[in-house]
Amino acid sequence: ILGGVPAPERKWPWQVSVHYAGLHVCGGSILNEYWVLSAAHCFHRDKNIKIYDMYVGLVNLRVAGNHTQWYEVNRVILHPTYEMYHPIGGDVALVQLKTRIVFSESVLPVCLATPEVNLTSANCWATGWGLVSKQGETSDELQEMQLPLILEPWCHLLYGHMSYIMPDMLCAGDILNAKTVCEGDSGGPLVCEFNRSWLQIGIVSWGRGCSNPLYPGVYASVSYFSKWICDNIEITPTPAQPAPALSPALGPTLSVLMAMLAGWSVL
């Protein structure tokens, strides 16, 4: 995030850090106990999902708090139109975790925006652990930034070509104050407040660099993909849970207990 400030704890409890080989690479957001929403391009480079981990309840990448949880990935569903009609079009990924998230005051789901959501004069924020300067500096602290949405005709004008911005994308950024998202923020949420609830309207996707404010950040439109997201979560079975097993130390103890109970039953 360029031009942001450190986010207070518990302010964005749906924020996810996507780790690849132990390093933060992308953001994501919690949809429910098993599902995280992120960007397809965060998962495209390597199909081995075993190398990815999801962290929730995290504010500082180097400090695990009381509510920090770590999850392995069970499956990743990329949108079928990813890279089909645009180099970074259809940039949506649904990530199913192997085990369920335990909600707390630091770990909560976000709402999804519907196609009919009215974005006029909305209070919108982006969050992430991406680059914080055009020189490539990073921050371990989650950054937050309030930013205005940019209407589609203006975004077309700024990017200078009609085909760059597709109907499944939206633009946001503070052109005057050079506030925008950057590398490492991808997959993270753009949320807006409606009636005291936060709805996710965008997924950080792409932009022409981060340092030129005249090229705003481009986000995958959540309302455009909301039906696909809901349908896929609904039809995908929850992962099989491992059967509970007795620990070697507990086995003999239970055997003794069972023998005692058997003796009592005779009495």
Binding site: P13, N32, P109, C111, L112, F194, C230
Partner: peptide, 27 residues
């Protein structure tokens, strides 16, 4: 599974807790 919240035009994908409601409000 899908619970629409008409008052805020949002979709909640979980029935166990309210979506989009942090316990700490930003200033």
């Amino acid at each position: 599974l899908v619970h629409r919240q008409p008052e805020n035009q949002g979709i909640s994908l979980t029935g166990s807790v309210a979506c989009g409601r942090p316990s700490m409000e930003g200033k």
